[in-house]
Design a protein around this nucleic acid. Structure first.
Lengths: 401, 401
DNA sequence: TGATTTTAATTCGAAAATCAAATTAAATAA
DNA sequence: TTATTTAATTTGATTTTCGAATTAAAATCA
């Protein structure tokens, strides 16, 4: 019942160590404004519980300073194993990280279905997590927690999936199902949010407190980080960038509404228009058709250029609106597919800059960050990692001696 | 140098008392999870410093409970006097509040200019604050702080006005100028942000942690509250709802860009279109012309209806985008002018609801909150009030005995 | 090589803050 | 008037943090 005040200090120090990477006690003290005495006390507890470890002095260092040498502390990777999963259209991506965030194993498999019963999907996930474990030479029950990213509308705090292209039913308490089936702590969120977590943990957002991540996959997703925290909206359906309207009574979107950004920039939107071009062969598969369209545009085909350009301008408009509303420090355009290249072209970025409210201060930075499909899974793992760290800290209150 | 931990408790209790209004110590304890012993200790300090006061038992109460009666605590209004000012196009609105938020006096005067030198404006403000003081039978130096709201792009933390329709120059450190000239703590912010503060303190946002306020004056403004805190963006130019784009290469806006929401819904935008109607008399003044346009639309004039309807649909589109991005609990459409009525019509609200991402959960509430011009000033005062309370709490650390 | 200097980390005693339990205060009910 | 009930305060113990003193571990100097 007693509120452990010590908890505060432990949290501050553990996250400072994670943020800095490897740091001596005396620097921790100045960094966190906690006295050296208390830093010693608290880090001793964290060491005892195995959450951090001392780094053996680097003998061959040239720093030749007088006095007692600093002893660096870092997160102890072996403290916990964390898995992350991204449930995609047709593939399942998995990674295994240690408590330090180091990747120990990865796994990518084709999925049997695109749309699943919740229970079956949980079974599939369990099976592949076990595969992942054996690939990393550990047993499944050594995994302390798993993060799962799924497309759709997810209320992370309650673990409810209101809708997902991967699930047959709506309004599923999918996180509960996962926890029961997987038998370990599970953390579920929208996949775009997890990209934001990935960028915050491993990517471009490491030292930025307010940023926005935009992802382009089959749809357009967004994650918002405000004050160093993921902002999820109150019902779990915020950050629906792809369904912001860029044209009154505009093009028809998959969601049934008109004028959504997605209805101008997504694959299916481009192909809908491409179908009027004579050379477009509607029997080839999506990716190939997109490639042909882009090639045609690059080769100067007017109609193709027109299609691509409009997509770019719509995208720029939507993004400029985000800037005008949020005024973030940084915008990360993240993606794994080359298809998004035309949206990340310099002309588009310039168009964004010219559409935001102008003041005598440099505009937000826009960076393009390309990565493979595993980044989604790594974001999921990073999300779980935070959850597991939280559990570990709370545990320390219980068995304090 | 010692970090006073007590400060945390004082802050928690003071804000709990402010939030609840009048509350017994035992309820404070359960509300804040601070023990009864500590509540007694801390409230004794707050009483000693005059920030709160005990409410004399209501003798004629029918609550006839056994036992020692509760003694309610409340904020002590007399602790501080706070002024708030809104610098408008042509008028200056001032209010004087006590520390409890009770209004003691108000003042509204015509301004000599629309566009000012910063120093002259500060002089004008000083003069009128002195008038306000005398109106309330107090001396100017009894005022503990003043909040000032100004239209334009303001970076509140630094006190810099990047641009304002009320100031001749750009990039003015206006808050510093105010502090020096007024000789009391001054707090400056964008006027739309202060409406958000007003709603949070006195209005519809009192018990809501995530909401958006949209205001329509001559331009379109917005304030964002996330997690109970005003979100200002990183450079101070976020929340520029009026300059979000609703049409690619659309109507020309005052800001020089095209397709801004403001260019469709502001007075000048409506009149630009109205000028093509035969009956429109361009020599009459703005307000009268707007009224005639709205009347014509109501009487079935097709062109007039068309103008008004488009404005409403654009407004709905912009607002739906806000919902899709933020997913707030509540949207407050705030305004003092009847002119905005057509934008707050049921048809427009319905259009918003149908343009947001649909899930099996009720959509965010939209409320319309009309108020007089003083609400702006009250918001400014509420902002200053928080600042003064903060100063008072920090002071307690200094002269602790 | 051994003493000195320098810097980091730890230990120790004091001060501060919080809490549970005991006590006191102030009312109603019997 | 006395017992009962509930709120608020006081008390003593515990926890937590800190500054200062001490110890530890290195480089430098004599």
């Amino acid at each position: 019942m007693i509120i452990q005040q010590r908890e505060q200090g432990r949290r501050t120090l553990l996250s400072a160590i994670r943020r800095i990477g490897s740091v001596a006690r005396i620097d921790l003290a100045s960094e966190t404004d906690i006295s050296r005495a208390t830093v010693t006390t608290i880090t001793a507890e964290l060491l005892r519980d195995g959450l951090i470890e001392e780094i053996p002095r680097d003998t061959a260092d040239g720093d030749a300073r007088r006095g007692r040498p600093r002893v660096d502390l870092k997160i102890r990777g072996a403290a916990h194993l964390i898995a992350g999963a991204k449930i995609g259209d047709s593939t399942l991506s998995l990674v295994l990280l240690d408590f330090e965030g180091v990747q120990l194993a990865e796994l990518e498999t084709d999925l049997a279905h695109q749309v699943w019963e919740a229970d079956t999907l949980a079974d599939c996930l369990l099976h592949n997590l076990q595969q992942l474990a054996s690939k990393a030479d550990i047993t499944y029950d050594q995994i302390s927690g798993v993060g799962v990213g799924i497309a759709g509308i997810v209320d992370a705090p309650s673990g409810v999936v209101y809708w997902s292209p991967s699930l047959k039913e709506r309004n599923i308490e999918f996180c509960d199902i996962l926890k029961k089936r997987l038998n370990i702590p599970a953390f579920l969120d929208n996949d775009a949010n997890l990209v934001a977590v990935a960028e915050q943990s491993f990517g471009e957002g490491r030292d930025v407190s307010d940023f926005i991540v935009v992802t382009i996959e089959s749809g357009v997703g967004m994650g918002i980080v405000i004050g160093g925290k993921l902002y999820r909206g109150t019902r779990g359906c915020g950050a629906e960038f792809g369904h912001t309207k860029v044209q009154l009574d505009g093009a028809l979107c998959r969601c049934g509404q008109r004028g959504c950004l997605e209805a101008y920039v997504a694959d299916y939107a481009l192909l809908r228009e491409a179908s009027v071009i004579a050379t477009d062969d509607r029997t080839t598969r999506t990716e190939e058709r997109i490639k042909q369209l882009l090639d045609a545009a690059r080769d100067g085909d007017e109609t193709a250029s027109n299609i691509i350009n409009r997509a770019g301008r719509m995208f720029a408009m939507g993004l400029a609106n985000l800037v005008n509303i949020f005024d973030p420090q940084l915008i990360i355009l993240a993606g794994e597919r080359m298809q998004a290249d035309h949206l990340y072209a310099e002309g588009v970025l310039e168009s964004i800059r010219s559409s935001i409210v102008q003041i005598d201060k440099s505009p937000p930075e826009i960076v393009i960050h390309k990565w493979g499909s595993l980044m989604w899974a790594k974001g999921a793992a990073a999300y779980a990692l935070a959850g597991v760290a939280e559990i570990a800290l709370l545990d320390m209150n219980e068995h304090a001696e």
